[in-house]
Design a protein around this nucleic acid. Structure first.
Lengths: 337, 337
DNA sequence: CTGAAAGCGCTAACAG
DNA sequence: CTGTTAGCGCTTTCAG
């Protein structure tokens, strides 16, 4: 069955295509009676406007691109829900593109987006991203972009982040307050804003309390989970091993638990752990996991709302270019005996 | 900066638009030398073909729609990864649409997809879906669709599923083999294929071993987690309460743990638990959770591959219309003392 | 090997 | 209030 189109409707009703078009868009130029007739026939014949024709004509696609490293991660999946809740209202569709933490892929995706395929972009950069040329290029093509969570400091794009430094500080302080004296930090990449900021908070807390940070106590993890387990085990095999761990991304929770297990170290008796995570199930871990829980859904919503505003060409105050939504420390079993 | 287009390239090189078009698509009609010139200039001027113009002209969008109830669920997020790994190769984009387990939304989305916005659809139906009219309509508009995981039995569409009945049977048998005599089953909806099939397997195992199923031992859960916790608590408050639970979807894992906790019942001593889940972190639960783990990634891949074949108009054998990939029982602490 | 021209379905200026 | 017409950017005959 062929797609019904405006021309066919016009023929059927002995009207011109423009009349149909206007009637469908509820234009004031068209009489109520014809609007009725048109709407009814459209309904009856199951007419669906071709979005590509509209896009071509109107230079807007009603698609927004969401570029993230990964979906199988509770932060990102919750953020997607937040994004979707906002853009759906405005009649936009969500095109999800995964970088798998690969900078080349990220560049390729943004390049593709220069084609006009999307009207705007929401992005959380990959752990390999340390330059913003591709973002600049996109902006130059007048495709608005809002970064969220993982941002690039030097790119002057709108952004929604959480208080990463403060959270790293809170996590570390919480461990120290609970008796830890040698706390280790697990980051994801030296290039990553969130990793670095959380690290800064960690360093601040350690210094503030006068604890020194061992050379090997800041571990940079990779995307290879087995390798990460080995790295954490090695960390814990040191003669004067850490008695506290701040894991800066969700992926590392199983890694730390596994490593402690294999090293026969008990959580929290031997090692206390705080992990950045949004997993609902963190409370049911063995032991339950103390987390820094990010406002994932809200961040997605806020970022999407900012993008919608940009798309409406409403002037956005410079002051509104950066939004910070705080994370929460949720105390659980992994940090208290 | 304005979008570069074919016309501009043509003007620049003193060629016609059709020559440019052909050169860009590497047509045999064009000389090597002009191809070179065209390619080079296109590269230099950062030319990106407008996908909507191509779509309008060629009647294909290179988008595929993925319709699922939820992203914040490890099964679906892994399936998305699988889907993406396949369609990306073929130059397709993934448009993700969330139904939030709502049938009306699902219908609206498929309706929208009749517009030609996508070339094909991959879908896992909502828990409220019990009729396939919307799917039929889509097929009638020549939009191929492949269902995965949650399918509708009576719809004659291609499908990729796991061995749900067998898995329900395995899970239940495992509990019985570990000493349970009164096993309860938590389903998600009476309308849902996977829930029903898993339930059938459960019933089969119970009957096979001669255990009767109490009236209240099959619980239908909802999307409201608090309500689910209350329901499970009620289940466990019965005088002759179940000593085993099969939870048929991942969402229910925290519910069961929470309910047992609030009822002061120990897992696995008082109640043994098997849950359908793909969470990596299941192994670190307290206690570690025995799961039926579905081949989520593979199912996504297979479903996408089937859709690609449908889009290529390659004849698909009726025998290939249904693919079943088995799930695995992973024994852990929640079912053994 | 290259070009002219038609048209995909829709919108919007302009005319009546 | 309704119709005519000219594109949006691209592909594809069909002619040279």
């Amino acid at each position: 069955m062929k797609q019904m189109n405006i021309k066919a409707l016009a023929r059927e009703l002995n009207l011109s295509v423009s009349t149909i078009s206007k009637a469908l868009r509820d234009s004031y130029e068209i009489s109520e009676s014809t609007k009725q007739r048109v709407m009814q026939l459209a309904e009856k014949l199951n007419y669906k406007p071709n979005p590509y024709a509209s896009s071509l004509r109107g230079k807007k696609s009603r698609n927004i691109g969401v570029v993230i490293p990964e979906v199988a991660d509770s932060f990102f999946s919750l953020a997607i829900n937040g994004i979707e809740s906002i853009v759906k209202e405005k009649g936009y569709h969500v095109l999800i593109c995964l970088t798998h933490e690969d900078f080349e892929s990220e560049q390729a995706i943004l390049k593709e987006f220069q084609s006009g395929r999307v009207d705007g972009v929401l992005m959380s950069v990959s752990s390999e991203t340390d330059a913003g040329g591709h973002i600049h290029e996109l902006i130059e093509q007048d495709v608005p972009i809002v970064l969220f969570d993982r941002v690039l400091k030097e790119v002057p794009a709108a952004r929604v982040i959480t208080d990463d430094m403060e959270s790293g500080y809170k996590a570390t302080k919480h461990l120290i307050d609970n008796g830890c004296r040698r706390v280790a930090f697990l980051g994801l990449s030296k290039k990553l804003s969130i990793s670095n900021d959380r690290l800064k908070g960690y360093e601040k807390a350690m210094h503030e309390y006068g604890w020194r940070i061992g050379k090997k106590d800041v571990v940079t993890c990779t995307t290879d989970q087995q390798q990460n387990i080995r790295a954490v085990k090695k960390l814990l095999q040191q003669p004067n091993r850490p008695d506290g761990i701040v894991a800066s991304v969700e992926k590392l929770a199983p890694v730390v638990y596994q490593a402690c297990n294999e090293e026969s170290l008990r959580i929290p008796q031997d090692v206390k752990v705080v992990c950045f995570s949004n997993l609902e199930i963190a409370a049911m871990l063995h032991p339950s996991l103390t987390t820094i829980t990010q406002p994932a859904y809200e961040m997605g919503q806020k970022a999407a709302a900012m993008l919608m505003r940009l798309l409406d060409k409403k002037p956005v105050q410079t002051a509104d270019m950066e939004v910070i939504i705080p994370s929460k420390l949720v105390r659980r079993g992994s940090t208290s005996i």
